[in-house]
Nucleic acid binder design. Sequence first.
DNA 1: GAGTTTGAAACT
DNA 2: CAGTTTCAAACTC
Length: 824
Amino acid sequence: MKSSRAQPHRSGGRRSRWPSTRREIEEKGEDEERTQSTRCGEAYGDEMDTPERSKVAGTPISKFEDSPVFNFINNLSPIQPVEPQDSLHVTQTYQSLNFASLSSIFSSPHINPPRETRSSGRVPLTNSIKEDNASNNADESNLLLEVSDVARPSRFTTSAQENCMIACSLNEATVDPPDQCPNLPSTFPQPTQYESGSPDHNLTPCYGIKMDDKLYVDNTSVELHLIQTSVEQRKILFAMGNDVQETHSFDLTKDEAFGCDWESLISDDGEGLLIFDSSMELEAQMGEAEKIMDDDGNIFASLLTNFTENADCLQKIQSDISHGSCVHNVSNDPSSSCTEGCNMDHETDCAEKVLSDTCQDQVDIHQQRGMLRRCLVFELASVSKKNLTPSTSSSKGKRICGANNLKLKTTPLHALPGIGLHLNALATTSKDTMVTKDAPTSGKQVISIPIDPLISETTERENPTNSLSVGKDSGPEDSEGHLQIVPYDDPKDAIINNCEELTQGSPKKKRRKTQSGGDSEGCKHCNCKKSKCLKLYCECFAAGVYCSEPCSCQECVNKPVHEETVLATRKQIESRNPLAFAPKVIRTSESGLEVGDDDNRTPASARHKRGCNCKKSNCLKKYCECYQGGVGCSIGCRCEGCKNLFGRKDGTLPSAEGIDQAEKEADAYIKEDDKLEDGQQSTSIQIEHHAPGNILPATPLRSIRLPVEMPFYSSSKPPQPTRLLIGRSPALYGSHMIRKPEFVHLQTKLDNVTTILEDDDTPAILRSTATSTTDIKVASPNGKRVSPPHTGVGLTPPNRKGCRKLILKSIPSFPSLSTDDAEH
DNA sequence: GAGTTTGAAACT
DNA sequence: CAGTTTCAAACTC
């Protein structure tokens, strides 16, 4: 029916989501907090993955065997160093992570809310990756320099990156981390937001890459240090260790408190890890250096001294941290991952205070001492971040608190973002409008590592894509700040915005928003009267979120209080129709990618889960799900007189008239939007229209099996036929788009990975990747499922330049989704 | 804001 | 699976 349906699963940012039916129900009662967190913004089902995700971490330390640190440690203590693990671990880990059982990933029909996106999650990785690519030279060079300075094997960098990738993928994919991380101490939650830096170390560029490794490394090193190092060093290390632990604790606490953010945590971890890594390593290395490099003995000695002194400082800082627990998002990005709808305010406030205070203090300290210890960063809730200023970054490049430069932004999964997002939620998200400005912000300015929401089969999670951004800025992805690609909509953000606006807006606006809201996930404000919000008629229900204030429903039962009823109902509906809660329209991740890459590519392949049945609307109105979803009708549709501008079911392209009409409508929308929303809208508007014929996704003939995140048009605005513009079409670019390329890029760095990218001049970011499903699976940074290119009406991109086959030697391809799908 | 239209969801 | 009813969004005035 409506947009909402079309994009049913967007979860409302602030709205609470249902507990995922299956598991949650089972576990229900087990952990109330969790449930709550779920409600806070994740679509049901999201949580499921989360916990597991958190486990993901482990990266082998074996890599570091060669590192000076290890040597140093070994020399210091008689105690046997930790047994090095297989160097291949990373790869393995990666595999495991990425390919955690699909079932777990897609177990639930629920989508992860993009908000977490991580919304956008999703994207963050991509973004980060992109950034790497984009800025890669600079950043890399920095890293390398650092490494070299410390005598650190370049390898580190690589590994770090790899890890990062892994982490990202995990997040994005929502993959459960299997037990795969033996190395990782269970006690340490991955999500560490620990950041430390060497005095000279310029953290700015945080490579998400390092995160995991570092984390592990840190952990490892910490322990080792305690046992092995000299008194002073011990002292220092101890302090560090404490920090680490505290950090972890902190995370845990945070986790518990906020419950919603596994994704965030993960992403955060990433950040922290990066930072942490550098600091830890640096320190350790420094120590080593001292030992080894005597040439500058004085220097090192002084450094040690500094370290010792800093220990105190650290403690001090820690205390601060403990208070504020704030996160410093590397970026200011509001959208930042956190998104948990809950406690947003809290976080925000906290973040602001803490960040400013803590960061500033830290900076000062660092500057004074010439060392940057570390900075805890708290991810800010999406909104406020902007305020945070990077000002603090020290000239030395140490850490930049708010810097725009390289920030890793974690996007919550959203759904998407992340992964846990509901497809619907993701899918439609936001597009509307709100999105743009702030929301996604998070992603925008900072590199985000959003987790793309995966869509699970039934579940689906879609990412909102953000429409806008890219165009403006440059980057294709949502989140990238640098690139300026527009971030996904963070579900959270979007939600928030939407909610607010909705509440206040004019009727039209409201309506629009509603639509969009639905899109955006959070706020769907339903208006149910007789269904009690327990039927699919109810957008909220369909999206898997509880009704909230913005809703005008009557006799609403879709509330946490009636959770059981809600779940039971849902279950019932699902039993009747497993795809009932699946997103109406699914776009493949490719879509986004494609855009940039090839002319030929289909911008987005979207599929309509189930054909429309329009009779009077001619598939030219929003009554038509296909139209609403911005996809063409397919044979599977039972519509009459189909004139779907995005593609008719007969396979014919829309006529010029149709196009004109569509454009008119689009213009109307745009105008409306413009009136209502200034800049933001424009962004969306900027979406280029593609020639209808070219590349529109069509409704799949059969049910969609692979939900994928896709960028979407805002629901409020009917998707418009697009004319292909390469490199633009923000909307089309999903976060994932970039990700793939990035992913590839990362892989290239991997030892075993073979890529074919090199020949391509196209910026990595723009490169699209896989063509085939298989490729996609492998390449998909998000780990999202990718639907095979749609063969339907002209959708399939014939040949893509971008399609490179990435071959990860060590990484297995995704298991076929079909199995999982079957479940649903 | 009320009323109508529309097509999906629900029901038979 | 088809036909009918119910429902709420989309749309119109």
